[in-house]
Amino acid sequence: MISRYILGLAAVTFLTPAIAVAQTAPAADTSAEALAQELGGDSITVGLGAGYLPDYEGSDDYRWAPVPGVIGSVSGINFQVLGNRANADLIPTRQGQDWDFQAGPIGVVNFMRSSRSSIDDPRVRALGELGTAIELGGFVGIGKTGVVTSPYDKLSVSVSYRHDVAGVHRSGIWQPAINYFTPLSTKAAVGLFGSAERIEDKYVRTYFDITPAQAAVSGLPAFRGRGGWKSWTVGAIGTYSLTGNLLKGFKIIGGGTYRKLINDVAASPTVSIAGSRNQWLGVIGLGYTF
């Protein structure tokens, strides 16, 4: 279902900055020097959260769903599996480097409207179920440590592309993104982020078009759209260590995003009539780093 797709996407945005902060550097306080000696080592974080999100992309009905995740760094290789999304940065991150070059594979399992039972609106349910898309691709990016508030904050930009290989929407998605995060102490960190998505024609026609036959059974008007910029998203995240510090122990993580659907996606009756172009999402979770 699309809720899992959005949740996985949000989980990446929410959880990655918190862990990246932990692996970058601590804020200056009495234990910062000792904590800094631990930077650059191997670590794994496992977590489980709850997300409040739309039934499908463009819905105005919301539900709760679980957010499992694993984030790790081994020999400088960073990887993560969050919800329905996985990626790995295959360029090793070395201790003490200011610039971080990033590149690697990315994969998303897209459940959008693959389960009618997860959709409350009867008009959208009447459009029928879709298959589960498997979107594979890659990303490149660059980050800089020590840019605004301290020697330990980090600003990064990236762009990714993925394409459906399961024959469901048979199209691609481009996603540029920018992230900024900073530790506030050895136990707390915050981050801000923004991204946008550009989609190809077949994506719109699979998920947002309505054929005359579908219009007859759903009561929504027929619609045919084109690809282009689909949405932009902004959000914030915060994390606080309940035991230990940002590099080890239990931590609580919470955040939220606002997404604006635009262009033909926003004009689709599944959004403009049955839903809303304003999409909100919140996540709260607990993680453990070892």
Score class of each variant (00 low, 15 high):
residue 282 G to N: 07
residue 182 T to A: 04
residue 203 Y to I: 04
residue 142 I to D: 07
residue 274 A to L: 01
residue 26 P to T: 02
residue 268 S to D: 07
residue 164 D to P: 09
residue 163 H to N: 10
residue 162 R to W: 13
residue 45 T to Q: 08
residue 268 S to E: 06
residue 110 N to Q: 13
residue 16 T to Y: 03
residue 170 R to G: 08
residue 103 A to T: 04
residue 140 V to A: 14
residue 185 S to L: 05
residue 66 P to I: 04
residue 86 A to Y: 09
residue 102 Q to P: 15
residue 285 G to M: 03
residue 44 I to M: 04
residue 40 G to M: 04
residue 82 L to K: 02
residue 223 F to T: 08
residue 216 A to P: 10
residue 13 T to Y: 14
residue 142 I to Q: 07
residue 34 A to K: 11
residue 225 G to Q: 04
residue 270 T to K: 09
residue 68 P to I: 02
residue 5 Y to V: 14
residue 131 G to M: 06
residue 263 N to K: 10
residue 91 I to S: 04
residue 56 Y to C: 02
residue 117 S to V: 12
residue 38 E to V: 15
residue 104 G to S: 09
residue 198 R to W: 15
residue 127 L to F: 01
residue 176 P to E: 02
residue 179 N to M: 13
residue 264 D to V: 13
residue 227 G to F: 06
residue 9 L to H: 13
residue 170 R to A: 08
residue 201 D to Q: 05
residue 159 V to R: 00
residue 194 G to R: 01
residue 142 I to Y: 03
residue 45 T to I: 10
residue 175 Q to N: 13
residue 234 V to D: 06
residue 68 P to F: 03
residue 279 Q to C: 07
residue 39 L to A: 11
residue 41 G to M: 04
residue 197 E to N: 12
residue 41 G to F: 01
residue 20 A to G: 14
residue 281 L to I: 13
residue 201 D to S: 05
residue 283 V to W: 05
residue 142 I to E: 09
residue 135 E to A: 00
residue 275 G to K: 00
residue 76 G to K: 00
residue 29 D to K: 07
residue 279 Q to Y: 04
residue 115 S to G: 09
residue 226 R to E: 14
residue 170 R to V: 11
residue 219 G to Q: 02
residue 249 G to W: 00
residue 214 Q to T: 06
residue 78 N to P: 12
residue 36 A to V: 11
residue 42 D to L: 03
residue 35 L to Y: 13
residue 138 G to K: 05
residue 227 G to S: 03
residue 255 G to R: 00
residue 241 S to A: 12
residue 3 S to Q: 15
residue 55 D to L: 04
residue 52 Y to W: 10
residue 270 T to A: 12
residue 183 P to K: 01
residue 241 S to W: 00
residue 78 N to Q: 15
residue 176 P to T: 05
residue 283 V to S: 00
residue 101 F to I: 15
residue 225 G to H: 01
residue 25 A to D: 11
residue 177 A to M: 09
residue 137 G to L: 04
residue 101 F to S: 11
residue 212 P to F: 06
residue 272 S to C: 06
residue 213 A to G: 11
residue 216 A to C: 10
residue 110 N to I: 14
residue 106 I to H: 05
residue 290 F to V: 13
residue 34 A to R: 10
residue 14 F to E: 10
residue 278 N to H: 15
residue 181 F to Y: 11
residue 77 I to C: 00
